[in-house]
Structure formats: structure tokens, C-alpha cells
Design a binder for these strands. Structure first.
Lengths: 197, 197
DNA sequence: GAGAATATGTAGACCGATCATCATAATATT
DNA sequence: AATATTATGATGATCGGTCTACATATTCTC
């Protein structure tokens, strides 16, 4: 039995996954350490063994995981869609579904935390910023591949992403996926007309 | 001396103004009661006299004030601008300026609080939603007045506002007003071409 | 494979901060 | 003078994140 996989890795992973889930729904400051360890099933001290930096370090790991998961989702959307416009609609739809199934509690996991991260949590702030950059870079790459000029792709990526993120906030407040659908429709209109010109 | 103005009103008002300022920069959960009373200059008990509901009731009052202030700003922007596109640019610019002068700490005061408001603070959630509705209604009215069809105005208002809110988040994370300027430019392009068609 | 060294898991005590409450005092109003 | 309004800050119960001390498991060295 050459168990090459250290048991600690799995513990750490569960800690991160559970933390992401709770942070996603309740935010950073809204979540206590007790909730984090309860959600993971591990005792209090295990958290400080794997994350000596405490709550913030755990949050950074959770945000990084969210970055990877959503980043993969973006790639999948563009791979599955016939056009950039359709891909953005798929992305908006994915967010809308999570919003609905969570009774409008779960918006963008990164944004929820990003707005709470101030000067007292610089690493958390950096992790959130890194997520946005990662996602924007992915969208930009795909837009370029679809034929948009480089500078145009950069701006369109930021514009599209901003619109979806803003719609996510509005949709949560309104308890309706409407804003997300509307934004997806508008973006489709914009991208398709521009491409054909 | 028929002092008809009760002294309590002023105290209450100062409490609200100070609270809005602190909530704007630090969020709801990130702000302690001590900071709120320190910022107002009044002692602890005064807060609970004027706001028996405690922190949440004070936050509701603060968000409502933010709604009125920004709502007035929206009206002013549309009144001062020659076109809806220009008005939206003015609004985005106002947000961008506050972001810059606060070292990227102050985004949209309502959004900062809205994402932290969960099921445990339903009245705060409602106050935030009411703010968004108020702003959207103002934008929609102006778009209709500018010649857009009613249904079109509703969707364009939500789309424009979503884009600006999303850009605000991105701008804060990036510590750059770039996203806001880009969104304003894209929206101008969109609104102007559509109107002339 | 035996024993040492390290890695990981577990439990709880700590101090500080939090929000909310209260009894009391000061001031306005009638 | 009598009553209602407003101001005040000490107080308590609770919960927050961090840390230390100990138990167990895993890996390394010989």
C-alpha cells in the first residue's frame, strides 16, 4: 500500500471546499471560525495547522479555488458555444442558476468577498483581484480568437464581464434572474452586430 | 424661544451621516458599534435611543440616505447632460472620482452593504433593493423622455446600471478607474448608435 | 523491523471585541 | 413644578480569532 497521497492534503482540501461554500453564501466577515470548522467536520486546531495564517489564509485558498472553478467554467462555455455571444449567455445562465437554487444567496463568490476585503486583509484583496484578472484574460483570449482586434477584445471583455457582475448584484437584490437574462441578450446583440460589421 | 426643531433630530441626522460614511468605506459587518459612535461624536447610548433597532436600523437609515443622495446625483447628471449617454458618463465619472480620492476604498455605498445583507438582516436587504429600484426608475424615466420606447428604456436602464456597478467593482479591485471609463465609452457608443437608427 | 523524528489531528483555554441593556442624569416642554 | 424627552457611559452576556498543550499517526533512519 504505497499511499503516496498524504492524508493532510485531503483534510486541507476539505477545509478549503467547506470554507468556500460558507464564504460564498455569507461573506468573509459574516462567517465565524466556528462555522468554518463545523462545516468541514474537523476540529478547530486542524485549521491552524494547515493554515497558520488563520481565517485570512483560508479565505485566500478558498478564493483561489473559486477562481479556478469559474475559470474552468468560462473555458468550457466558450468551448461549447458557437459564438462568444452564446458563451457569455451560458456564463450568465450558470450564475443565474446558482442564484436561483440558493434562494438568491449565492452570487459571485469572489465579489462577495472582494467588497469586504480592505486594507486590513491585503492578501485577500490581492487574491480577489487575481481572480478577476484571470477571468478577464480568458475571455479576452477567446474574443481575440473569434476575430476581434486585440485592443477591442480587451475592452469588450472588461465591458461584458462588468455587465454580468453588475447584473448579478441586481438579480440578487431583486430576487429575480431577469437582469442576468437581459444583460446576456444585450451583450449578444452588441457582439453579433459588431462582429458582422 | 419657540424652538420648534427638536434637538433630537439633529443628533439623529448626525448619527446617520457618520454611519453612512463609515459603512461606505468598511461595509456593514466590518464596522463596529464603537466606530459608529466615535465617528458621530455621541456616546453609545444615544444610538440606541434614536435607533432602538440598533445597528441594523441605523444602517437602513444610512442606506436610505445614500439612495436619496445618489438619486439626486442621477437627476442632476441627466439635467446637466445633453444626452443620456453623456449623463451616464457623468455618473460613472462621479463614482470614479470618489473611488480615486478614497484610495479605492469607496465604491457604491449600497452595493458594499447589499452583498453583506443576508437573511438575518431582511430590512437592510429591503432597503438596498429599494435603492436600486429608485435609481433604475430615474434612469428609465429619463431614457423614455429622451425618445426610447418604454420597454427598451427599462432594459437599457438595467443594462447600463449593471455595467456601471460591475465596472465599479472591477475598478476597485484593479485600483484603476479604467474599467469605469471603458464602460462609459461603450455605453455611449451603444446608446448613440441605437438612438440614431 | 525498532525506535526516533516529524507530521497531523484534537481539545480547550485565552483575551479581546462585539452588540445590546440599563439605571441614572440632564434638559425641554407644558 | 411636573412631565416628557433626550443624553450618558458603565455593565453583561456572547462570540470572535488565536494560541498552547497534548494525542495520535505517519515517515525516516539505522
Amino acid at each position: 500500500m504505497r499511499r503516496k497521497a498524504p492524508k493532510g492534503r485531503e483534510t486541507r482540501q476539505r477545509l478549503v471546499t467547506a470554507a468556500l461554500s460558507v464564504f460564498h453564501a455569507q461573506g468573509y466577515r459574516g462567517t465565524g471560525l466556528s462555522q468554518l470548522v463545523d462545516a468541514s467536520g474537523f476540529p478547530r486546531g486542524s485549521l491552524y495547522f494547515h493554515f497558520p495564517g488563520g481565517k485570512e489564509e483560508l479565505a485566500v485558498a478558498a478564493i483561489t479555488q473559486a477562481k479556478d472553478e469559474i475559470g474552468a467554467g468560462i473555458d468550457m462555455a466558450f468551448a461549447a458555444a458557437a459564438s462568444p455571444a452564446e458563451a457569455l449567455s451560458l456564463i450568465a445562465d450558470a450564475f443565474a442558476r446558482e442564484l436561483e437554487t440558493s434562494n438568491y444567496a449565492r452570487g459571485c463568490p469572489v465579489t462577495t468577498v472582494a467588497l469586504e476585503a480592505g486594507e486590513d486583509t491585503p492578501e485577500l484583496q490581492a487574491a480577489c483581484a487575481a481572480s478577476y484578472e484571470d477571468w478577464l484574460a480568458r475571455i479576452e483570449t477567446r474574443l481575440t480568437a473569434a476575430g476581434f482586434a486585440p485592443e477591442r477584445a480587451t475592452r469588450l471583455a472588461a465591458f461584458s464581464f462588468s455587465a454580468i457582475e453588475g447584473a448579478l448584484i441586481l438579480a440578487r437584490a431583486r430576487r429575480s434572474r431577469g437582469p442576468l437574462d437581459d444583460v446576456a441578450a444585450e451583450l449578444s446583440l452588441l457582439l453579433n452586430t459588431e462582429k458582422s460589421s
